[in-house]
Design a protein around this nucleic acid. Structure first.
Lengths: 143, 143
DNA sequence: TTACAATTCTGTAATCATTCCAAATTGTCA
DNA sequence: TGACAATTTGGAATGATTACAGAATTGTAA
């Protein structure tokens, strides 16, 4: 199975020109389900593509978001994260290590409250914040 | 009823020194339930307090958040919003006019999925995005 | 293949919310 | 009042993201 071809055609099917940069970024998102930031993607790809520009990563991610290939996560202030899994699910962000975890969230698929009658809902997000299991243990050891 | 005194004591009770700046900012948050940004607060208060510094607004809001007086909302990229209502409720952000609406969200009070067993949950947020009623109507008129 | 147009990419400069920091001010309490 | 601590101020720094204009690449048609 040639994954590069897979992503190449995935882009073509969405009407996006499958440039080398776009394929690589899409490939990275599929292979690294860590809800990466643009910077993280750039850091990991640039060693193998020395001319890759940060701007290209940003542009490509915006393009992917508009095409519905990724969903954008605004959990922490400052940096935006990107999730190749566009299905309805919740996100837990650890305040200590920064890792973002997925969890199932039926609430996101349910009915919309009547207070929002007449509203057009385009995105639904459920975010939790706190300490992940590992960091919680570490915190306890310290104090 | 003297509101200034109310907020003065509210701060004192939380162990925060009730400086003029802090009381005014707290007062503003109670009177203007618009989930304002730090900049909005500064813009509205500075005419009456010419020496008020943006930094003070930021510092005070951080202080309030740590004291549990406000909750911080990270809905849009870039700017953070502050909500004096710390009860569990959802937020709808209009992509067009930027207004943030409240809605009741029982999902935020329910059980935590077993995937997060062992996690310490400090915050829960439910965010919807799209077009509010008014902006939806306007969009339709245009085409 | 060649040539031209359109698209994409690149890298630097700008933007803008937020934070840093050191000096000035204000508050507290003996 | 005096002295120390807490708070405020404003200008400089930070850092993610965007703007922009030129360079490179790709697509198309002869």
């Amino acid at each position: 199975m040639n994954r590069t071809i897979d992503y190449y055609t995935e882009l073509a099917q969405r009407g996006l020109q499958p440039s080398v940069q776009r394929v690589r970024i899409l490939e990275f998102l599929h292979a690294n389900r860590i809800h990466p930031t643009a910077e993280q993607i750039w850091l990991r790809l640039s060693p193998g593509m020395p001319t890759l520009s940060r701007t290209t990563v940003y542009n490509t991610l915006k393009l992917f978001a508009e095409a519905g290939i990724v969903q954008t996560l605004v959990i922490e202030e400052k940096e935006m994260r990107f999730d190749i899994d566009t299905s309805h699910h919740g996100h837990f962000s650890c305040d200590r290590c920064g890792t973002v975890f997925d969890f199932t969230a039926s609430a996101l698929s349910g009915a919309v409250p009547s207070e929002l009658d007449g509203f057009e809902i385009r995105e639904r997000h459920l975010y939790y914040k706190g300490l992940c299991r590992e960091c919680r243990t570490k915190e306890r050891r310290k104090g």
